[in-house]
């Protein structure tokens, strides 16, 4: 289920603007990979190109290869819709569908694919997904209530439940905790730890402690200069990155000695 991702020399463009250049990395299955780096260096752009959400923005495109299971996501004939089912995504701001109940939010993705699913199967799936997202005990009595009535942290876990309900191979998270309080943040971090047994997880974060706490591997992105494209500067075991980074820029950034 969890899949390895091989990124080969990936360039990401917004129209004429080359935002990120030449990323090559292997993202391990059943592990958490954290992406860190200063603002604007292209972490989100890179993350979104892993499930072809990048091209949703008008004019945006990529060059290079992203292999999931040795299958290039950008090969001709690959349907981005199918890619996004395999590679799920959690956004910075919680975004449950406002007009749907908690229950419907969880099955929103599943319903797309399998119209006729038994009610009991659906109930099981909702329960399993919400349990998987550590939200079940908090919402099991109000599944029919709108998802927008939950707290921010609960909403974010609802979005995670919605993402894992479609059983993706990979879960991408773009600063999933940046809109949350410390307690909710801890809840999500615990959740990430649980999820990694089943999923390949890639998380973007600005919080160094968080990266150190939850991730197995860490990639550091940086801009050489303003106007230059972002690059993957260093990619290694999290322990190594935080204790003994190979690059000066990484060390500066991690220790806070950064402009």
């Amino acid at each position: 289920m969890a899949k390895r991702i091989d990124v080969k020399d990936l360039d990401m463009y917004y129209g004429d603007f080359l935002a990120v250049k030449g990323v090559t990395m292997t993202i391990e299955p059943r592990a958490v990979t954290a992406l860190i780096g200063p603002s604007g260096c292209g972490k989100s752009t890179f993350l979104r190109s892993l499930n072809r959400m990048h091209e949703v923005i008008p004019g945006a495109y990529v060059k290079g290869e992203v292999l999931v299971d040795d299958q290039n996501l950008y090969a001709p004939g690959v349907d981005p819709v199918g890619v996004r089912r395999r590679v799920g995504m959690v956004f910075q701001r919680p975004n449950p569908f406002p007009t749907m109940s908690i229950y419907d939010n969880v099955v929103a993705g599943v319903k797309l694919n399998s119209k006729r699913m038994k009610k009991s199967d659906m109930d099981d799936l909702v329960e399993a997904s919400l349990k998987g997202a550590n939200l079940w005990s908090e919402v099991k009595d109000r599944l029919a209530k709108p998802g927008s009535g939950l707290s921010g942290g609960q909403q974010q876990r609802l979005c995670i439940a919605r993402t894992i309900a479609v059983k993706p191979d990979v879960v991408l998270m773009d600063e999933p905790c940046s809109a949350l309080d410390p307690i909710s943040t801890l809840a999500i971090e615990d959740l990430i730890n649980d999820l990694k047994s089943e999923y390949t997880i890639v998380i973007v974060t600005h919080n160094m402690q968080q990266a150190a706490r939850v991730s197995d591997m860490t990639g550091f992105f940086n801009l050489e200069a303003t106007g230059q494209p972002g690059r993957l500067v260093e990619y290694d075991d999290t322990q190594k990155i935080f204790s003994n980074p190979g690059q000066k820029a990484t060390e500066d950034y991690i220790s806070g000695r950064f402009g």
Partner: peptide, 23 residues
Amino acid sequence: VRPVPQPTPAAPRPPTDTPLLHR
């Protein structure tokens, strides 16, 4: 890769699975 904690029980898989390479 560090050893993983014991896996949580798997939820039922959705009945159909989209193949990546669509015709």
